[in-house]
Nucleic acid binder design. Structure first.
Lengths: 346, 346
DNA sequence: ATGAAAAATGTAAGCGCTTACATTTTTGTT
DNA sequence: AACAAAAATGTAAGCGCTTACATTTTTCAT
């Protein structure tokens, strides 16, 4: 009895098993999978039949090792637990999927060291390219990426002065124009609730945007009251309460994102304050929460899904062409809803 | 001049380079990395110095191929673009990280075929284990997983009748008890807005829960008006409008999740209906949106973060011990807020 | 029919790591 | 100091795939 096309049972079939069953060489099987138009139709059929009957699927680790590419893109985001990243990343991965790439996601919990660790991990796992959020990180990280020739793309931020490939928006300019709107309505006592700005350039740029708005209006930017707290509704609420107990109570509270703003809104309601009559509140991002809040939030709209798509395209282009694609600045716009009005008459 | 500890420049250092620089064998370097207490402290130091000076980090593909494990867990979720998955997955990955595992995420967009494809892809990429959402999938998929000996865990659902390892909650029972509350308040004309139930067992179980509640109350479950639509605020709003133009207008609308419910709430406001005086609305999940909605939503609270944590623990236990861990049912509870009240007097 | 070019297929050498087994070094007795 | 046992290290064979190069088969103009 001919044993040549017998295959071990109870184990995961490998490419060599397919080759044996199909009666061809391993190279041919590999070609069927990777360069299908280099094989004859008849051969292809035999191989495909063998693959189906064995339930074979290739081992990507072996493939990655042999071919030195993984068709995997890594993304390191601060947290999935924020609609803006979740949404953008969802779009990013849908777009990648179209090009046959898989996404590897890790999150840094807004911690710089953890982000660096994750970058090394994803690189070691063979990510062909990386999506990173914001510009801020140690120079050694950028050097590492350069040395490894791993294309990296910065998203959620765009700064023409920075050399990195980026797809994002200008946090500074967007917040500045929102600040201008606030100032134009007559507010003079403004406060900010922001995420810690130490290693978060988006948050920092937004605060700087407000300060520059103040300066342009002839006001002292150092007079700006700022509370730093992590993104969460609860923290937003607490920060707002603190602000309201200040001697110089602000008439407008500009928040670093919608989550904080909704928290502020909630605290305001609990304190019996009318928004926007007593205090104005603004957000940033325009997540769903913003439009269904008890008082719909005036905020900066950011095209998160489109950002994810563009980012994927830029990365794939870089990967395919071998040369860095073009950075892309996305527009933001202010959504005027119900939380911004002139300050109360004294 | 001694050339033995020279190393090629301009390339990615590999383990052999580390060995050469440190003056030890490749096996020793490998052990420093994987079995650190099998090497002498002095050796360890030499090796670590070499690793630092070269900027070495191991190639996971090679490691996976040689060791036949990847320390990677895959998760296939319907979409990241829904707070419940984003939040649960975030917790899942934080927990995995503690055990040195990386998470590979893919999303199926609620499409059964795509999910199957993703399962094969993640398996091929060497996921040691898989997190799946809900029970519903082709038997061949479960067979495939079994043959490959890939532990899989079902989350977001728990059904004692199903054999799979699961960490989740009883969608049917949770929704039934919510229905009971609705019925007890006197509602007799109830409608559901749900996600398509064809390949979504969670959605299906929730609807069945309502039907059983109806039956228990002596009502005809087939009389239940059901609108199936994809999860989104807009779709929820539209479905609610449709329901309100029906001849037999329902007095309570039970939604498959909070996103639909918030949409319904929005539509109600636009139509000038008072919630809960004119119509009651209920949700499911208890995402942030639910508590900050214009009328805080009465909904079923699901412990998403804890589910993610438990799921990670169960999977790691399975991986470490080699035998299937224990399923775990998480409790849900009803959050009574502002959208449920008795029907209006006629 | 014939032969050269083109197309299809085969052979076999790695890719960078882990690990069984072999060898050397250290430790702790006596 | 000598020896066995234990600890540390080294040697080398793969893991499952891709791909350069070699060989065979097919195609097509003559």
């Amino acid at each position: 009895m001919d044993e040549t096309n017998k295959v071990p049972v109870g184990t995961v079939p490998k490419l060599a098993d397919v080759a044996r069953v199909a009666g061809v060489s391993t190279a041919t099987v590999s070609r069927c999978l990777n360069l299908p138009d280099q094989v004859k139709e008849k051969t292809m059929r035999k191989v495909m039949d063998a693959i189906d009957s064995l339930g074979y699927s290739p081992n990507y680790s072996a493939r990655a090792l042999a071919a030195n590419r993984t068709n995997t893109v890594g993304a390191i985001i601060p947290t999935m637990d924020n609609a803006i990243f979740a949404r953008g990343i969802q779009a990013f991965q849908e777009e990648l999927h179209k090009s046959g790439c898989t996404l590897l996601v890790a999150s840094s919990s807004y911690e710089e060291d953890l982000e660096e660790e994750q970058i090394r991990t994803l690189t070691a796992r063979g990510a062909d390219a990386l999506l990173l959020i914001g510009y801020h990180r140690q120079p050694r990280v950028y050097e590492f990426l350069k040395k490894r020739r791993i294309p990296a793309l910065v998203a959620w931020a765009y700064n023409p002065d920075q050399p990195q490939l980026a797809v994002g928006f200008n946090n500074h300019a967007a917040m500045k124009s929102l600040a201008r709107e606030v100032l134009e309505r007559g507010h003079r006592k403004i406060a900010c609730i922001t995420a810690p700005t130490g290693s978060n350039d988006r948050a920092r740029d937004r605060v700087l945007g407000v300060k520059e708005g103040l300066r342009d209006a002839g006001l002292d930017p150092d007079g700006l009251t700022i509370i730093e707290t992590n993104y969460s509704i609860e923290n937003g609420a607490q920060a707002f309460q603190e602000l309201m107990t200040l001697d110089e109570r602000p008439t407008a509270v500009m928040c670093g994102n919608d989550v904080l703003a909704v928290g502020a809104l909630k605290a305001a309601t609990e304190m019996g304050l009318k928004i926007p009559d007593d205090v104005s509140i603004t957000g940033f991002d325009d997540i769903e929460l913003a439009s269904v809040a008890p008082v719909p939030l005036t905020t900066v709209h950011v095209p998160h899904r489109r950002m994810g798509q563009f980012a994927a395209q830029a990365l794939i282009e870089t990967l395919d062409s071998g040369q860095t694609g073009e950075s892309h600045e996305l527009p933001t716009n202010i959504c005027f809803r119900g939380t911004l009005a002139p300050p109360p008459e004294k």
